[in-house]
């Protein structure tokens, strides 16, 4: 129960961060990706700030050497699904202005473009998920 509440609080904070930073606004995300137009560097600063705080969490988890924390999981190789999947994601990101987090948060705000992106995203996740299980079996 305590862990479930912790995850709920983490979700609320994560969502609040996406709202405060303006990353739920697809126009702002596309403004960052628009390097040949009027470039808005905001997203880079959001990432830098988020990575710094997240790094502190990783350090704390490593110090506690909590076996539940997957900080020292064995590294998987850099393979084709990683690179090609990321490129496909980047194309979808540039076309829609949404990555998964903001799509979920803005759906909670009943923003119809986010709902459309989420409706497209779920079958995409399911199709790739089926492929992955098929590969493993």
């Amino acid at each position: 129960m305590k862990r479930t509440l912790n995850a709920l609080l983490a979700g609320l904070l994560f969502g609040a961060g996406l709202i405060v930073s303006g990353m739920v606004n697809p126009a702002k995300v596309i403004g960052f990706l628009d390097v040949t137009g009027q470039w808005d560097p905001s997203l880079a600063l959001v990432m830098a700030s988020a990575i710094s705080l997240s790094w502190l969490g990783v350090r704390l988890a490593a110090r506690r050497s909590d076996p539940a924390c997957p900080t020292d999981a064995p590294a998987r190789p850099i393979d084709k699904p990683l690179v090609l999947g990321s490129i496909v994601f980047g194309i979808g990101w540039g076309v829609s202005g949404f990555c998964p987090g903001p799509a979920v948060v803005a759906t909670g705000d009943l923003y119809w473009p986010a709902l459309a992106v989420l409706l497209g995203m779920l079958p995409g996740l399911a199709v790739a998920g089926m492929f992955q299980t098929a590969q493993r079996d």
Binding site: L9, F14, L18, K28, L45, S49, A50, S54, G57, A61
Partner: peptide
């Protein structure tokens, strides 16, 4: 660079909340 669109304080604050949330999930739920 579109300085008029750049919102550094919102970016820093929002990013900090995101990083805090990620840390909370890592430390509390692994």
């Amino acid at each position: 660079i579109a300085w008029t669109l750049f919102t550094p304080w919102h970016s820093l604050a929002g990013g900090a909340l995101i990083g805090l949330a990620a840390s909370l999930l890592l430390l509390g739920n692994g």
